[in-house]
Nucleic acid binder design. Sequence first.
DNA 1: TATTTGTGCAACCAAATGGTTGTTGTTATA
DNA 2: TATAACAACAACCATTTGGTTGCACAAATA
Lengths: 105, 105
Amino acid sequence: MIERRDVFQAIADPTRRMIIQKLSQGPLNIAQIGEDFGVSRQAIAKHIKILNECGIISMSQKGREQVCEARLEHLDAVTDWVTESRKLWNQRFDKLDNFLASIKK
Amino acid sequence: MIERRDVFQAIADPTRRMIIQKLSQGPLNIAQIGEDFGVSRQAIAKHIKILNECGIISMSQKGREQVCEARLEHLDAVTDWVTESRKLWNQRFDKLDNFLASIKK
DNA sequence: TATTTGTGCAACCAAATGGTTGTTGTTATA
DNA sequence: TATAACAACAACCATTTGGTTGCACAAATA
C-alpha cells in the first residue's frame, strides 16, 4: 500500500467534500471552516493539509489567520478520468455492432 | 468514523480505477481482470465486491464463472458533485462583481 | 475418473485513516 | 499588560484498508 495523496483520495472523505463545498462559496480560515461540523479544529486542520497538498485549496497567511481558498480547477483530473472511462464504455457498443455486422455477412 | 461505501470511496483506490477502466472495454471474469495487475486474485475479488456494492459494476453467474460488467452510469454522482461545487465556485465571482458594483455607486 | 480452472471463505497482518487531547507559540484585543 | 483568539506540533488510539496465505468446493476438461 503506497501512500496515495491524489485528488481522488482527497474527495473520498465526506468531511473533506463538505469543506470543499463550504470553501467554494468563498475563502475562510480554519476555525470558520470547522464551525458547523462536529469535529475538532485539529481534525479539520488535518483535512485542510491533505486538500492543500493535492492543490484543491490554497493557503495564505493573513496576520495570525490562515486563510483557505478553493482551487477547483484541480478537480479536472476527476472529471477527465470519468469522461475517459465513459468514452471507452460507449465504444464497447460499437464493437458489438461491428461484431453483429460481421456475423450478418 | 462511519463506514463509507460510496462511489467516491470506490474510485479513490488506483487499483479499482484500473479495474473500472479495464471493464469499461467489455465484461470479464475475476481471474481475467487481475491478470496484468501485480496483486492476488483474492485482492481483486475484494475490490470487485466493493465496486459491486456501490453499483459501479454488476455481476452475473455463467457456469462456474463470475462475469463482471461496468455500469458507468453510477459515476454520475461524482460528476454531479464536481459540477455543483464548480457552480458555487463560479458564483463567488458574481458576488465579488456585485460588491464592486455597489461600491462604485 | 482425475485434474485443472474459477471461485468463495476465513484468518491474519502492516500500514493508513480519521479522530482525539494536550502543550506551546504568536497575534490581536480589552 | 493581561487575556483571548488562531493555529502548529506531537503523541496517542480505534478502526478501516489493502493486502496476504491456506483451504475448500463446484464446474469444465483431458
